[in-house]
């Protein structure tokens, strides 16, 4: 399968990339592991690709001013193997290591995955549960979008046309914070049929996010309300599972009907809560 013809520009800085995006039908190429398959099927036919893989400032993972900063160009493999992530955001490392396969993790990037906003991708649930901010840059400068405002629907985000994601910023979790990411994979693609990310802070505040369940990943405030600030017990876990995925449109496909997906979401929430108890 061969994509339609397009122009190609490799850029070295974010400013160059933004200037190169002036054309309406340009697309950013990072790892290319969502975009190129879509282009080969001709579901996507951009007239120009702006390759940002060589932008040094988009790489790297560091701690800065009380935040963990993951460059948008960090690959899933970079994140899965990173010491800082493993010690402070272990569920990011776990989640990253469950994406696709070795070859995909070597090239796919966190920024690319977030911008693509596949309803079954792993990163959306993880950034939502971690209270992350998505830092984006456009012709008017930089701005931060809260993860909870970022995902707006099926494959859609609040990212503007001329903006690119530069980093994902997560407040460094307090000592004693526990995290878990539990995923039921679609056996063929290994995307999430259900992915549940949970972050529980030492004061008992509990963030719960789901991916794969609905048109876009979301925080489940009903389930959060049941366990936040309370002891995690068999009873509270059961109550949280009962409250979960109530007011959302639940997806249905070849691998999981609406009813089964709803059941799985509750089971995987239970697993995640048990892991942080």
């Amino acid at each position: 399968m061969i994509p339609v013809s397009f122009d190609y520009q490799k850029v070295k800085t974010v400013d160059e990339a933004i200037a190169a995006l002036s054309n309406d039908n340009s697309k950013i190429l990072a790892g290319g592991h969502s975009l190129l398959p879509a282009m080969k099927l001709r579901l996507s036919q951009p007239s120009k690709l702006v390759d940002i893989a060589a932008i040094a400032s988009l790489k790297g993972i560091k701690e800065e001013d009380g935040e963990i900063v993951i460059g948008a160009g960090a690959t899933h493999a970079d994140i899965a193997g990173d010491k800082l992530i493993k010690s402070k955001l272990p569920f990011f490392a776990e989640g990253a290591s469950m994406i696709g396969d070795v070859q995909v993790r070597n090239h796919g990037t966190i920024g690319g995955s977030l911008a693509h906003a596949d309803p079954a991708a792993d990163w959306p649930a993880l950034v939502l549960a971690a209270d992350a901010a998505i830092e984006v840059q456009g012709s008017n400068g930089k701005r931060r979008i809260k993860a909870t405002d970022f995902f707006t629907g099926l494959f859609s985000t609040s990212l503007q046309d001329n903006e690119i994601i530069v980093a994902i910023r997560i407040p460094v979790p307090a000592q004693g914070t526990k995290t878990s990411y539990q995923k039921f994979s679609q056996p063929a693609s290994r995307f999430a049929i259900v992915g549940c990310a949970v972050m529980r802070f030492p004061d008992g505040k509990t963030n719960i996010a789901f991916t794969g369940v609905s048109d876009n990943a979301f925080r489940d405030s009903n389930a959060e309300a049941v366990v936040s600030g309370k002891v995690i017990s068999n009873d509270s876990i059961a109550a949280a599972a009962k409250a979960a995925v109530q007011s959302v449109n639940i997806l249905s496909d070849h691998y999981a009907s609406e009813e089964y997906r709803k059941h799985l979401a509750k089971v995987y929430l239970k697993k995640a809560l048990q892991a942080v108890a």
Partner: peptide, 10 residues
């Protein structure tokens, strides 16, 4: 790397 998912220019 899956070379069917990478452009030669990359």
């Amino acid at each position: 790397t899956k070379s069917c998912t990478m452009l030669a220019v990359q």
